[in-house]
């Protein structure tokens, strides 16, 4: 029986993130999910890239690898295919996952690699000082869009859904019980499990866009969330600037790459 404490290196705390940063909430949810699933720590691999969230590798009591910026899912693909028994968790910010690594995201989802991908979307590059990313909303102020951003952003969950991922969920970082549930479901799904967590960067994005302190910023993010069931009855205008949350995709009709490839191996060796 593993407990929460088996998955964390408590001696490494306090962590390096700013006060009110959602990254800690995601870390906490992940560790609780691991304990709930009773996955032996040595079977877990945590893969990150660059940026604030990537520093997460310091805290779990599991093997970890920091890939290069954006290459999280590409590295994870190799890990999972080489040893399908491993549980591979890919933790990315919106820079890693949606922007520099966007190409790997769509292909990993399309190939249906059996890993759990969590994008902690805080709408900007925190580590480098609050520049805009591919998820920064139109008009937002960042250190590289001082007059307001003139680019449209990605709808991450819809993008991954369109790529054919069998499991997609989205929630706010404060929606902690659902977050943990989604991590567990995404992990247990045979195939690409994707969760977008809407999170707060109080230090940069919050400050630049006058969103107040951590609780205020979290509340504003919560107010942007619309549960999928409610969104069904809303018009496009009403949904502008909103994020549809909940379990958005849960399919069992898709075969993951590893399973398909194993079938191929068996067929060619039988010949």
């Amino acid at each position: 029986m593993y407990t929460y404490n088996d998955y964390i290196k408590e001696e490494k705390l306090p962590h390096i993130w700013c006060a009110g940063c959602g990254n800690g909430i995601v870390l906490n949810a992940l560790l609780h999910a691991l304990a709930d699933m009773q996955i032996p720590p040595e079977e877990v691999v945590i893969v990150t890239g660059s940026g604030c969230l990537a520093r997460l590798v310091t805290y779990p009591n599991t093997s970890t690898i920091k890939m290069l910026h954006g290459r999280v899912l590409a590295g994870a693909t190799g890990i999972k295919l080489a040893n399908p028994n491993l549980k591979v968790f890919c933790l990315m910010g919106d820079g890693d996952g949606a922007t520099i690594g966007g190409n790997h995201l769509i292909h990993c989802a399309r190939r249906n690699i059996d890993v759990t991908a969590i994008i902690c979307n805080n709408f900007n590059y925190g580590m480098t000082g609050g520049q805009y990313s591919a998820t920064t909303p139109y008009g937002a102020i960042t250190t590289t869009s001082r007059y307001g951003l003139v680019e449209e952003n990605f709808n991450m969950a819809e993008l991954v859904k369109a790529c054919g991922a069998p499991y997609v969920a989205r929630c706010s970082a404060t929606d902690v019980l659902n977050l943990r549930k989604y991590i567990i479901e995404a992990t247990q799904k045979k195939g690409f499990g994707f969760i977008e967590v809407l999170s707060a960067c109080v230090t940069h994005y919050g400050k630049n866009n006058k969103m107040g302190d951590a609780p205020n910023m979290m509340r504003q993010i919560d107010s942007m969330c619309v549960p999928a069931a409610r969104a069904k009855n809303m018009t496009e205008e009403e949904l502008a600037g909103k994020y549809i949350t909940g379990k958005l995709v849960d399919r069992n009709d898709l075969i993951d790459f590893g399973t398909s490839y194993q079938r191929l191996r068996e067929e060619v060796t039988a010949k």
Binding site: L13, P14, H15, C18, A19, G20, A214, P215, M218
Partner: peptide, 16 residues
Amino acid sequence: LHEKRCKGCGICAAFC
């Protein structure tokens, strides 16, 4: 409360 870890963000107080 692990006081050493707390950074005083106030989320616990605001959402309790």
